[in-house]
Design a protein around this nucleic acid. Structure first.
Length: 451
RNA sequence: GUGGCCAUGGUGUAAUGGUUAACACAUCGGGUUGUGGUCCCGGUAAUGAGGGUUCAAUUCCCUCUGGCCACCCCA
């Protein structure tokens, strides 16, 4: 026992003790940035999932699911210590056993880790993998930005061909296009780490000469991450950016040729794209091709957030402990696509609870029979509606009507004894009594379903 | 992480420094004993949390929490 002293009970607490007992417990709030995903959203999510899975499978990507948690070091090394994701957005903690772990903030590093771990280098290259899962970033929540969000992604590891870069951009765009969202690919090349060093120097030299015109925020970037100056939102920057050196001019011949090829493939595939010399990306592992996908919309709000992004990351596998291995990939923000889909087609999420047939019962005997009839219909391919817990036939008829039933099946005490059931035509208001064994048959006849 | 705006039943809204916080929709039940679409009646259900000012706070002030927006950044 460290101490026998008890903290003094505050008067206010003591007085409110009995009141607190009566009071309802204070509401339990969601953890910030977390949310429940309820029904209207699932219709959209299912649609995206179906498109994603079909595309990935058709293009011969193998499914992989990595754990939501990895050793923190994986992300530190893979994503880069200086990136925002690692610096301030990771859910990192130490387990009871003392392991330093992190909830994955993105999918690529883990897939790269799996590639090494499972000796995929011995499979035919490239190894193509797809995933669908939740990512976690401790960012300040906003609409379209959650701390737990779902990504669909593909990674193509072990091959440097430009056609694969193009395939990533294509698949990212196509997934979004397939679900009915018009989108455009913003694309750029940031070359190899070597030419980027040279470019960075040129960039710093340029902006240093204009330093007096830079905002405080941008001055910090000049030191910390000069490439980010290019997507500064500071209005004064637009002018400065025009004169700034562009990465394209600093690419080595191989990178330049590679980029040209990527664009040729995109042309061939009819992927709408626009060159964006200012597109860099926040993760250190990218090399050469980088791209982001944006919705096309009249509404500037709708096309502000990237729906997806990706590129080539030839250095990543080596960085995290594998052999030098070229790779590329992309990921799509499922939640953001859902949001966009909702704007475009608010009706698509409406779920219908319409049932052609409704089973109603009276009394305990009737209820037992109704339960059996329900299952007979369901397994017969006609899922009916029912409300077994209700007693009043009136209430059940109301529900049948509300649910748009064409036929109501009613079983009461009398019908149970006779081995029959009533089939009521909800439109005509007429009804007939049939052998309870023939209900499925009769209903199929009425609904004109072949048996 | 920084700044701005916001916070009333399940949903959408209303009102007020002072008695039972109003309305609509939704929900549950009833309108004689086994039958729906309209209608009528009734029930459940809210001032995000904690402090302060005040005789009195849902209303004014502060803190926290959460949401939205902008920045940061990204999906």
């Amino acid at each position: 026992m460290p101490s026998n002293k008890k903290p003094p009970v505050k008067k206010s607490e003591a007085n409110s003790a009995s009141a607190a007992a009566k009071r309802k417990p204070s509401p339990i709030n969601l953890v910030r940035g977390m949310r429940d995903i309820l029904n209207p959203d699932w219709a959209y999510r299912d649609k995206i999932y179906a498109a994603a899975k079909a595309l990935a499978t058709d293009y011969e990507y193998d499914r992989i699911e990595t754990p939501v948690m990895e050793e923190t070091g994986l992300f530190l090394r893979g994503i880069g210590k200086m990136t925002d994701i690692v610096e301030k957005e990771m859910y990192s903690f130490e387990t009871a056993g003392g392991d330093k772990v992190t909830l994955r903030p993105e999918g690529t590093a883990a897939v790269a880790r799996a590639y090494i771990q499972h000796g995929m280098v011995n499979r035919p290259q490239p190894v193509k993998l797809w995933y669908w899962g939740d990512m976690y970033r401790h960012d300040r929540p906003q609409s379209g930005r959650y701390r737990q969000f779902t990504q669909f992604g593909c990674e193509c590891v072990g091959d440097a061909a430009a056609v694969l870069d193009a395939q990533q951009a294509f698949l990212a765009w196509k997934t979004i296009e397939m679900v009915g969202v018009e989108a455009v690919v913003h694309i750029n090349s940031i070359g190899t780490p070597e030419c980027r060093v040279n470019y960075k120097n040129a960039l710093v030299a340029y902006f240093r000469s204009k330093k007096h015109k830079l905002s405080e925020e941008d001055k910090k970037r000049l030191v910390k991450n000069p490439m980010r100056l290019l997507d500064s939102k500071d209005p004064g920057m637009d002018e400065l950016k025009l004169e700034a050196p562009q990465i394209v001019d600093w690419l080595d011949e191989a990178s330049k040729a590679h980029f040209m090829q990527v664009l040729e493939y995109l042309d061939e595939m009819g992927v709408p794209y626009q060159l964006d010399p200012y597109l860099v990306r926040g993760l250190d592992y990218y090399t050469k091709t980088v791209f982001e996908i944006y919705a096309v919309s009249e509404d500037p709000e709708a096309s502000k957030l990237a729906l997806g992004g990706g590129g080539r990351y030839d250095g990543l596998i080596e960085t995290i402990g594998g052999n030098p291995t070229p790779a590329c990939g992309f990921s799509i923000g499922v939640d953001r696509v859902v949001n966009r889909l909702k704007e475009i087609d608010p009706e698509a999420g409406a779920i219908s609870d319409q049932r052609d047939v409704y089973v109603a019962q009276l009394g305990d005997q009737g209820r037992k029979k109704a339960f059996a009839i329900f299952e007979a219909l369901r397994s017969g391919g006609i899922p009916p509606g029912a409300s077994f817990s209700k007693d009043a036939i009136k209430t059940q008829m109301e529900l049948a009507n509300k649910r748009g039933a064409k036929w109501a099946i009613i079983v009461g005490q009398k019908e149970v004894l006779d081995g029959t059931a009533i089939i009521r035509d909800m439109d005509a208001g007429t009804q007939e009594t049939v052998d309870s064994k023939k209900i499925v048959h009769e209903i199929k006849k009425k609904l004109k379903i072949a048996e």
